[in-house]
């Protein structure tokens, strides 16, 4: 796959970092504004998919990216579990206990463990969808 025309590549260069940044904003402000890990993760996938579609698989090392994305997927689901287990031992034997101080409603650093879960679920969603997407592209390359 050769990628698309130079117009698309230039627009991709302009926009891709801003799309990724917006995804990070949706994830980190998930407990204050609409959004959260699920939505933000899907937006982050959009940024990566844009690069893969615009530049084509020749310019990128897809096998390496696939390994990286499936590794970060496993890592983030492990982190969610670890956070939950820590809650089990810190609080009164309750899984998914919110053990950090909750702070003031409406501030960025508040709500205890909820933002942390948001971040790791966002990583999980992004990595899983990216893995699926890259697997499809690699399948297309190899089946020629």
């Amino acid at each position: 796959m050769n990628g698309m025309s130079r117009i698309v590549k230039k627009v991709t260069q302009l926009l891709v970092s801003i799309i990724f940044m917006y995804g990070v904003y949706i994830v980190t402000h998930g407990h204050l504004t609409p959004g959260g890990g699920f939505a933000g993760g899907a937006i982050i996938v959009g940024a990566f998919a844009l690069i893969i579609l615009a530049y084509g698989s020749d310019a990128l090392k897809l096998h390496k990216e696939e390994a990286g994305s499936s590794a970060s997927e496993s890592l983030s689901i492990l982190m969610v579990l670890i956070l939950a287990v820590i809650g089990f031992f810190v609080g009164g034997m309750v899984f998914f206990n919110n053990y950090l101080p909750t702070g003031v409603v409406g501030e960025l650093i508040s709500a205890g463990t909820v933002p942390l879960y948001n971040i790791f679920i966002g990583m999980e969603v992004a990595a899983a969808l990216l893995t699926i997407f890259i697997a499809l592209v690699i399948f297309k390359e190899e089946s020629k």
Partner: peptide, 24 residues
């Protein structure tokens, strides 16, 4: 519904992968 939407996407992707494998 929020969880269900994401699960729906995952199952759809899985079904499509199986479909394209059968096509191959």
């Amino acid at each position: 519904v929020l969880t269900a939407i994401v699960i729906g996407l995952a199952t759809n992707a899985m079904l499509l992968a199986i479909a394209i494998r059968i096509y191959k």
